[in-house]
Design a protein around this nucleic acid. Structure first.
Lengths: 205, 205
DNA sequence: CATTTAAGTAAGTACGTACTTACATAATAG
DNA sequence: CTATTATGTAAGTACGTACTTACTTAAATG
């Protein structure tokens, strides 16, 4: 026998690059030639690591979850300076940083390929894991209807992503949206004081 | 001169069929041949009515809004038997019927094509119009932060769609989700009585 | 009726791209 | 060293598909 396989390591090296291309161009519009170029290898090399373009995409979906999960884990493990609840801490982190990695684009791309059972399964798993995380921390704040409210928080993330992508929510808008609606969802705390206004890019009635 | 143009009428006839195909197959995976077959015409005929496949897709996006808007308009115009507020009426309608037309698939397909300025613009316009509608009715119930909460309701619709598409929310789950989180969003009314449980397809901790 | 133009049909064509094949190099085990 | 297998390079190939071209049919106007 000779040369033990380093496929796993190679895959781990390349998957962030591949994820970036899929996020930038979507699934269909990404060509295997572009993936290879971004990895600085030939297409053939990629096909030795994954059996198909689809498999590369599914690996990208998994990678997206792992990146976000690591951030949240760290966030909860290290309380930082603030004294908020775990749910509150996730909320205020997301208020400032949601979507900045552009990974939600992988989700959009995946959703329009959800006819494919393998892609559907990968996405489903990803959402379920996010939900599990959120539900746990929402429950610790306010157990009543935590399951539903955790899903609603994911919905909040989805609109924020869509708003960012389509440009109808500015950074400040997204911040206010996540804090205002998020607070109401995790605690039932009504927004204190003045109304929080989230703009539609200047368009006001 | 002879034979006044009937292009507008023809377009109006065909667009529901075209929308259905795009919803079923996504943008990229839909072929112009499929569109023509669904309309029972030749491809060439479609190209006389729209300059490109992209134009057909944008027309489909607009059609999606018009269909949903008509439903909501009717819903608010005819109070039916119930005495709820307009916002509450939209909520309970959506709790039972959200996504049943499959039109959210057009949104998913569009989002992964949002690099294209024309598609982006069409989607943006669509979301803004939905938001306008919701904000108006949410405001009438609870003015504080209505703008943000209207966006949050759209987020609720998005998770419900994703949950339906990926199969992690059953019809009952979606119903409970929309009622539970939606009520909290439009009124700040805490869920009365027992906790509303939204399942993850049987998986419970 | 005659003319004009819309609506329909049928068969291309040019192009992009997922995946292959064939070959060269180099690293590790015995 | 030698055999074996991973890694890298380069050039196909087969196929799907957006859009065209050339032609026929038919409807409405003067």
């Amino acid at each position: 026998m000779a040369r033990p396989s380093q496929k796993k390591e190679r895959r781990a090296e390349l998957i962030p690059l591949i994820t970036a291309v899929f996020a930038a161009r979507g699934y269909r519009r990404t060509t295997t030639a572009q993936l290879a170029a971004a990895c600085k290898v030939q297409e053939n090399t990629l096909y030795r690591l994954w059996p198909s373009k689809k498999a590369m995409f599914i690996a990208a979906i998994e990678h997206v979850f792992e990146v976000s999960a690591r951030i949240w884990r760290d966030l909860i493990a290290h309380p930082g300076g603030h004294d908020e609840s775990p749910a509150g801490r996730i909320l205020s982190y997301e208020a400032d940083h949601h979507g900045e990695l552009g990974n939600y684009r992988i989700v959009f791309a995946g959703l329009s390929e959800a006819d494919d059972p393998a892609i559907k399964h990968a996405l489903r798993r990803m959402f379920s894991r996010f939900h599990e995380y959120l539900e746990m921390h929402v429950t610790s704040t306010d157990p009543s209807g935590a399951n539903a409210h955790a899903w609603a928080l994911i919905g909040l993330g989805l609109v924020a992503s869509v708003g960012r992508e389509l440009g109808f929510l500015s950074a400040a808008d997204r911040r206010d949206l996540i804090l205002s609606a998020g607070t109401r969802l995790i605690g039932g705390l009504a927004t204190p004081g003045g109304a929080v206004v989230v703009g539609t890019n200047g368009k006001r009635k």
